[in-house]
Design a protein around this nucleic acid. Sequence first.
DNA 1: CAAGAAATCGCCCATTTGGGGTAAAATGGG
DNA 2: CCCATTTTACCCCAAATGGGCGATTTCTTG
Lengths: 222, 222
Amino acid sequence: MFIVHSEFVDEMKIISEIIHVAIVEDDHEIRQTLALIIDGTPGFRCKYSYEDCESALASLPGNYINVVLMDVELPGLNGIVGVKKLKPQMPDTDFIMLTIRQDDDTIFNSICAGATGYLVKDTPPSELLKSIKEAHQGGAPMSANIARQVIKSFHSNEPSPLSDRETEVLKLLSQGMNYRTVAAEIYLSPHTVKTHIKNIYNKLHVNSRAEAIKKAIKDRLI
Amino acid sequence: MFIVHSEFVDEMKIISEIIHVAIVEDDHEIRQTLALIIDGTPGFRCKYSYEDCESALASLPGNYINVVLMDVELPGLNGIVGVKKLKPQMPDTDFIMLTIRQDDDTIFNSICAGATGYLVKDTPPSELLKSIKEAHQGGAPMSANIARQVIKSFHSNEPSPLSDRETEVLKLLSQGMNYRTVAAEIYLSPHTVKTHIKNIYNKLHVNSRAEAIKKAIKDRLI
DNA sequence: CAAGAAATCGCCCATTTGGGGTAAAATGGG
DNA sequence: CCCATTTTACCCCAAATGGGCGATTTCTTG
């Protein structure tokens, strides 16, 4: 369970710097186990561990910590809110979320809150240590299907319903141009631009510029 | 160079299914090396290899391929355009980009084009094989700093300049509401809403709803 | 406590927008 | 070669927008 591959130890020696870790986890047993794994591995040191965010918020900021392992499901303040509050006070510290949940909202809220890593709780110890190291060295460790969900969020689901010209018009609109300016920009009559815009609204099922732009950005049309 | 860890082979046996790979890479030597690595490992089979996207586009679609290794820097059509054209025709195939470039644009354009993985070209063979397997099993293999850049793109750089009320108003605006409707929604006078909007425009340095919404979404203010 | 920010309400007015039509030329795929 | 789509163009008009200017009340923060 605590075996570390020889090549792994070699890499640690090259870095020859101990990674300081803190844990926020409400389950007593898991917390102890994590601490044991970390302290039992050369190159890692578990400096602090807390059973809730409130304690972490009270004593963690100001200390030198490289990586924080943060449970998402916590009584009181949850891990997402915790990161949101801690990260601004510890901008150089990397936060890795540990969770049993893998739904979109939890993942993206965590990432947006400032987490750099996101691991499911059944990650084996060797992977966990590798992830802590990776986070500290400027990576972003993620469990496989978490990474896939993140990447998926960049993929557009459907082909654009807009024609090339319409897309062009919408892009210019999003830059704050009005009919007249757009028309001048692409050498058209303002009437034509207006027609395009009307068609854009129909195709996107909206009836204002605001909604059109919001939808276009959301669906990556522009 | 071609050594595979025993535990790795064990995992392969459990899956007991050969991963079919295709390569698009203009450098003759690299192409050959990749093919040798893949074909030389149990569980992997390099079925096709091309020196440009044009050839791949002409013969690849329709074939059963699990993972395509796609060089980004290619003569003629580059790898990004290649993925954009191939992916819709092969929705079940996973594309891993191989590149020497790590600039934001290249990364995000590749991902948006439909790639699920993104590796730097100096990735060692064992990592490459692991990544191919990971992509095939629903993951999204990325080199460490690529993953970090992707995660970073979710992080907001600066605190919002908008007050809570202003953010609230802007959110409603982005849903296509007008002064009157927003006012009714949050029990205010339309005049007040208008004042808020004027202040929003000032703070965001814009002078239209369109720009405000675009900027707000871009900066994750709403 | 004083200064500044935030939130609230108000008026005037030129310009812009969006919805309702109509229709012809150009383009492109079957 | 024909049909669907795209692109182009125009009219009318009520409603919404944005800019300018001023004002009071809270609330935070130094």
